[in-house]
Simulated assay, not measured.
Amino acid sequence: MNTSVHPPEVSHFHHRFEGWLGDELLEVFPCFLVSSALAKAIEEAGLVGFSLDDVEVSTSPEFQELYPGRALPEFRWLKITGKDRDADFCLTPDSRLEVSSRALNVLRQFKMAQAVIEATKG
């Protein structure tokens, strides 16, 4: 990871879970993870402004202690490629995820209890 630029550039994504509350869309600055089921749904919906890539996932000893026997779903790296509001997925200047109403309708079909969703102006 190149940390001399902001946001950092990531070429290999390994996320080690310390805990997980079940959401299928996760922000791990500056990256996003989606469950494979959600990844499939956004692809099938024909949404634009993203690509999917592999992510390496592991769990910490604390995770294993807190959630003995709990299996994580398969996750994919959701890379945001949209450059403006014409895309279904893009990043705001302060690196927050912005999605179209079409994308939000798909996302709302999945568990996102911890997500903060705000309406945009304009």
Rank of each mutant, 00 (worst) to 15 (best):
F89N: 04
P93T: 10
N105H: 02
F75Y: 02
A103G: 05
V99F: 13
V99K: 13
L72I: 07
R85F: 07
W77A: 03
C90A: 12
T81L: 08
R102I: 00
S95G: 10
G82D: 07
W77L: 11
D86S: 13
I80V: 11
K79P: 03
E74H: 06
K83W: 06
L78P: 14
E98N: 01
S95M: 09
T81Y: 11
R85G: 08
I80A: 09
V106T: 12
S101K: 15
G82L: 01
L91T: 12
F89T: 03
R76M: 02
T81E: 12
G82S: 06
A103L: 03
S100D: 01
F75S: 00
E74K: 07
R102G: 04
L72T: 04
R96T: 12
D88V: 03
G82M: 05
S100M: 00
D94F: 06
L72E: 01
W77M: 10
D94G: 11
V106H: 09
E74I: 06
T81Q: 08
W77D: 13
R96F: 15
P73Q: 15
E98V: 01
L104E: 06
W77P: 01
A103V: 04
R102W: 06
D86M: 14
A87G: 09
E98Y: 03
R85P: 09
T81N: 09
A103E: 06
V99I: 11
K79N: 05
P93D: 08
S100E: 04
L72A: 10
V106N: 12
D86K: 14
S100L: 00
C90G: 08
D88N: 02
N105M: 00
L78K: 07
D86V: 15
L72C: 05
E74W: 11
E74L: 13
R96E: 13
V99E: 06
T92Q: 05
I80L: 05
S95C: 10
A103K: 00
F75I: 02
D84V: 12
K83Y: 05
A103P: 00
F75V: 03
K83G: 08
T81K: 09
S101E: 15
K83E: 03
S100A: 02
R102S: 07
F89C: 01
S101R: 15
A87S: 10
S101G: 14
R96H: 15
F75D: 00
L91V: 10
A103D: 02
P73E: 13
R76H: 00
V99M: 15
L104H: 12
D86L: 15
T81F: 04
E98R: 00
K79W: 02
P93R: 13
T81P: 06
S95Y: 12
T92F: 02
K83V: 10
V106M: 14
P73C: 14
L104D: 11
C90F: 10
D94E: 10
